[in-house]
């Protein structure tokens, strides 16, 4: 299997300071160099990649965002991006150009509540109106737009309202995400318990069956199999972080709470130094190693309940949940068995 989607973390800068952000604030601020992105886009054509997605940080803060969109479209890729919506009006003219619009798969707009009170409690005062204005602009220009709510304590009871909001606004769908545990969101009570994650998954599945618009849940869901395969582990998605590293995962780089001085075994290769194809070969080896280690632990009875939660299992495997020991009362801590070092 070869990758279908190539995701770039364009920048780790952001114009908001959301309470539930997974990204650590201590990392130096970077923008992924334009030349490197273009080189990787050229190399990805040999791998059969067809879709390019842009994340951040806030990707619209990349100083050459418009140039990147043109470079992507000129190479024949379709594209999508995630945004908090605050700066979206600036790029509406570009996105409305016919050659660009026909390659745009989706604009995913982060929205964490069906009203200003709920959304702004997490994303900051005035944010809801700016997001609504951005969505109105996208709708007026006929751009495929989806909502991307992160489920947390504040909006747990509002999932249906958010789905209906997306439907009323004429959007193509919405993709809920779990809010992953960080020291900050465990401390301030935004984080849900494992049993609540499962309830969210049931509620989202029900909405998906009942509504006409597309309703989904992004990576991180509970999987009864100990050998879950997310888009990254399946190599459907390739993820390049803001430092230019091909990484195994889209969630783990610079995750809040991880020790910045520890090595990062989820980093495969830096694409400023290594061709994407060679990096992809190393990725295959790393994923095989991951599964071998997992199989051995399964046989030894060392897989805890936490490891059925995608993303968290990987975070733990890569040593990025060590901080959970400082939260012994958290229901997440109770799911963790003592960690064994990967071979």
């Amino acid at each position: 299997m070869t990758a279908r989607r190539l995701a770039f973390e364009l920048t780790n800068r952001c114009n908001l300071a959301c309470r539930h952000c997974m990204r650590g604030t201590a990392q130096p601020r970077h923008d992924l160099p334009f030349a490197l992105i273009c080189r990787v886009l050229d190399q990805a054509q040999r791998l059969g990649v067809s879709l390019v997605s842009f994340t951040g940080g806030e990707p619209l803060l990349h100083p050459q965002f418009e140039d990147l969109i043109r470079a992507t479209v000129e190479r024949g890729y379709t594209f999508s991006f995630v945004t908090n919506g605050h700066l979206l009006s600036r790029v509406l003219p570009l996105l409305s150009e016919s050659a660009v619009k026909e390659k745009l798969i989706q604009v995913a707009v982060s929205l964490d509540g069906p009203d200003a009170e709920t959304h702004d409690a997490v994303r900051g005062p005035g944010s809801f109106r700016k997001v609504m204005a951005a969505i109105a602009g996208c709708h007026a220009r006929g751009l495929p737009t989806r909502l991307k709510p992160t489920v947390n304590r504040k909006n747990l009871g509002r999932l249906e309202e958010m789905a209906l909001l997306a439907a009323h606004l004429g959007l193509t769908g919405l993709d809920f995400s779990h809010m992953h545990p960080t020291p900050d969101n465990l401390r301030d009570g935004l984080m849900l318990a494992p049993a609540e994650w499962r309830q969210v998954e049931t509620a989202v599945a029900r909405l998906a069956g009942e509504l006409k618009i597309a309703v989904g849940l992004c990576a991180g869901v509970y999987d009864p199999s100990p050998f879950y395969l997310c888009a990254n582990l399946s190599m459907i998605d390739l993820y390049v972080d803001v430092r230019g590293n091909l990484c195994l995962c889209c969630m783990l780089p610079a995750i809040r709470g991880a020790d910045p001085d520890q090595p990062e075994p989820d980093v495969i290769a830096n694409l400023a130094e290594v061709d994407l194809v060679e990096a992809h070969v190393r990725l295959v080896d790393r994923i095989a190693e991951f599964h071998r280690h997992r199989l051995r632990r399964l046989a030894a009875g060392e897989l805890s309940e936490l490891e059925h939660f995608q993303c968290l299992a990987c975070a733990r495997y890569f040593g990025k949940l060590e901080w959970l020991k400082d939260f012994p009362d958290s229901p997440w801590s109770g799911l963790v068995l003592p960690r064994k070092e990967p071979p």
């Binding site: 509406l92 609504m132 109105a136 602009g137 007026a140």
Partner: peptide, 18 residues
Amino acid sequence: VFTDLDDGSAVLLHLDNK
């Protein structure tokens, strides 16, 4: 909510009835 479009036109969104 008011959104200015690049050609001088604009769109309003009524947050109560969407």
